[in-house]
């Protein structure tokens, strides 16, 4: 092999440039979704929108131009798109037309109206019947894989030889708690794993709970604060979503 042919077959990094692509087609995008295993997720979301639009047609739920305008302006304010030129530039950057954007907002509004039509009157009854499901707890955790380590950590914490934060930063193998000094956040108790729900029932805030074994390992928990159930706006929205998703699922069952 000559020196010249070597130079031809192994270009330097400076000589290599990304290939120029004129336009990514919709087909290429769909293929990307398939190759990255996101097709099912996106398809389900698209199906949900189609169901919403179709059901709204049946129920004669519509969006007025005024409602669209208010929602569009609110969207722009929220995203700091105050000027028209700025907004048009953003649309171009998103590779969507003003009509696409408007249609997206229309579907959001239709979804909200449909949710309200179907379930707004059921939220209070659902909450009063299932109030215990809406207890929340702010808690910290340290997750380790070995029971002996877990017991040692509990002993150290109860003896006051180290802070929870310190031990979590050093030992927790869970991403959130490991990075945030143990604090996991505020969660509805009903969304926690059954083993954890059982272990924290009746526990006082501040108490170090004995290691709890789950499929993820051994959890050392401390409840920072209990929150009594309250039907706040966020809980209302959550219940509305829950009832709506359950209805969409039931639609799937019927069509299966």
């Amino acid at each position: 092999m000559t020196e010249a042919s070597l130079q031809t077959s192994t270009p330097t990094l400076e000589q290599i440039r990304p290939a120029a692509i004129e336009q990514i087609t919709d087909e290429a995008i769909a293929n990307y979704l398939r190759h990255t295993y996101k097709m099912a997720e996106i398809t389900a979301l698209a199906e949900q929108d189609a169901k919403v639009v179709k059901t709204c047609e049946v129920l004669d739920i519509t969006i007025t131009d005024e409602e669209l305008q208010v929602a569009g302006d609110a969207f722009r304010l929220k995203h700091r798109l105050l000027g028209s030129a700025q907004t048009l530039a953003w649309l171009e950057q998103q590779q969507i037309s003003a009509e696409d954007w408007t249609q997206g907002i229309r579907i959001q509004l239709l979804t909200q109206k449909l949710k309200d039509r179907l379930f707004a009157d059921s939220i209070d009854d659902h909450y009063l019947t299932n109030r215990d499901e809406y207890h929340r707890a702010a808690f910290s955790q340290i997750l380790v894989s070995d029971l002996a380590d877990a017991l040692q950590i509990v002993q150290t914490l109860r003896a006051g030889k180290a802070s929870f934060c310190e031990m979590a930063l050093e030992h927790s193998q869970a991403k959130t708690s490991g990075e945030q000094g143990g604090f996991v956040g505020v969660r509805f108790v009903s969304t926690l794993m059954p083993e954890i729900r059982a272990a924290i029932a009746g526990v006082q805030a501040g108490e170090i709970i004995d290691p709890i074994k789950t499929q993820r390992g051994y959890h050392i928990l401390r409840i920072e604060k209990w929150f009594a159930p309250t039907l706040s706006e966020s809980v209302r929205a959550e219940i509305l979503d829950l009832l709506f998703k359950s209805w969409l699922g039931a639609e799937d069952d019927r069509s299966a």
């Binding site: 669209l68 569009g72 105050l82 000027g83 048009l88 408007t102």
Partner: peptide, 8 residues
């Protein structure tokens, strides 16, 4: 939908 300038 109209895209006019909005007040902050």
């Amino acid at each position: 939908m109209k895209i006019n300038d909005l007040e902050s």
